[in-house]
């Protein structure tokens, strides 16, 4: 199940970074990275189309940052290939096609905000005007301040501006709102939305479920370096948790219920049965046709449950 929703207004922003049509923004094939005995990323394949806003969701240690490092060419995969617009990451970086916000600080404390952005802009042939980028990131009033004197949230906004200055068609953000308060997070995503409205492709790593749910067209759920679910928030929820069927069925036969199609597990409490299903529709048909079950309730778990179901526990 791979959903690739492309918004109607999708298209490349003007500038050098305009990617060729029909080529995936990001294509990862069989990516594997080991650190000693630990396999951080394990045979990960992923294709992201231009214009998609994708969340890479997973708990700490799921391999999100390692994957992003490989996408950006900051580390080399042991196995597998990375292509950005069909080319090696270094090419895309050289062309200003990619803007990224890493988790590590990445700024020099002794430069002012304005100097930092002017320097970054100077590396590209067609950067966005520094003034405009600062306004977008909400730091226009900080231009003359030294980076070292800013608060964590302000520095975060500077890093966001740095990611935008190349006028990239692909933006990659590694946990962009970590350490921000609720209001700053909302402000960040509001300016992000204005950016994506221009047709940019966005990949962001997060462990905030609500962020993935609210801002991404597509969620890629990672656990132990593998994709465990990939699709829209609704699809991921369904795949992760399926649904739960509750019913009253006196004298239920646990083995028979477990044998129903689409059922993962069965709980019996007196006259009440609880079926955890990966395909509740199929289970329900048989349940109605073949048993005396009544007071049937079908509930979907929320993304939080899906997330926990998929990411907690032992590696399969």
């Amino acid at each position: 199940m791979t959903a690739t929703p492309t918004r109607p207004d999708a298209g490349a922003p003007a500038g050098l970074a305009a990617p060729p049509a029909g080529v995936p923004a990001i294509q990862l094939a069989g990516l594997t990275k080991r650190y000693g005995a630990v396999t951080a990323v394990d045979g990960l394949s992923l294709t992201i189309a231009p214009g998609e806003v994708v969340a890479l969701l997973g708990p700490n240690g799921a391999g999100k940052s390692t994957t992003i490092d490989m996408i950006l060419g900051l580390s080399r995969p042991d196995v597998g290939t990375v292509a950005i617009y069909g080319r090696p990451p270094q090419d895309a970086i050289r062309n200003g096609a990619v803007g990224a916000m890493l988790q590590s600080n990445g700024l020099l404390p002794d430069l002012t905000v304005g100097e930092t952005l002017a320097l970054m802009a100077s590396f590209y042939t067609r950067p966005r005007p520094v003034r405009q980028v600062m306004e977008r990131a909400g730091i226009a009033d900080l231009a003359r301040k030294r980076v070292g004197s800013l608060s964590g949230g302000q520095q975060q906004r500077v890093r966001f501006a740095v990611a935008l200055v190349a006028d990239p068609s692909l933006i990659i953000l590694d946990e962009p709102t970590t350490g921000l308060d609720a209001q700053a997070r909302r402000a960040f995503w509001a300016s992000m939305r204005e950016e994506t409205a221009r047709g940019r492709t966005v990949l962001f790593a997060t462990h905030y479920l609500d962020e993935a749910d609210a801002y991404a067209d597509r969620i890629v759920l990672l656990r132990s370096g593998r994709v465990v679910a990939d699709g829209s928030a609704a699809q991921v929820k369904a795949v992760a948790s399926g649904r739960t069927i509750r019913a009253t069925l006196p004298g239920a036969d646990a083995a028979a219920l477990a044998a129903l199609p689409g059922v993962d597990s069965v709980d019996i409490h007196g006259d009440t049965i609880v079926l955890t299903c990966r395909d509740s529709d199929a289970a329900l048909r048989k349940l109605l046709a073949g048993t005396a079950a009544r007071d049937i309730e079908v509930t979907a778990q929320n993304l939080e449950d899906a997330f926990l179901a998929l990411t907690v526990g032992e590696t399969p």
């Binding site: 900051l74 050289r94 062309n95 803007g99 590590s104 990445g106 700024l107």
Partner: peptide
């Protein structure tokens, strides 16, 4: 010190 601050990783994401 610059490496410690992540500056070099940031520079590697530019055409420099």
């Amino acid at each position: 010190v610059e490496r410690g601050a992540g500056w070099n990783r940031q520079l590697r994401l530019t055409p420099l």
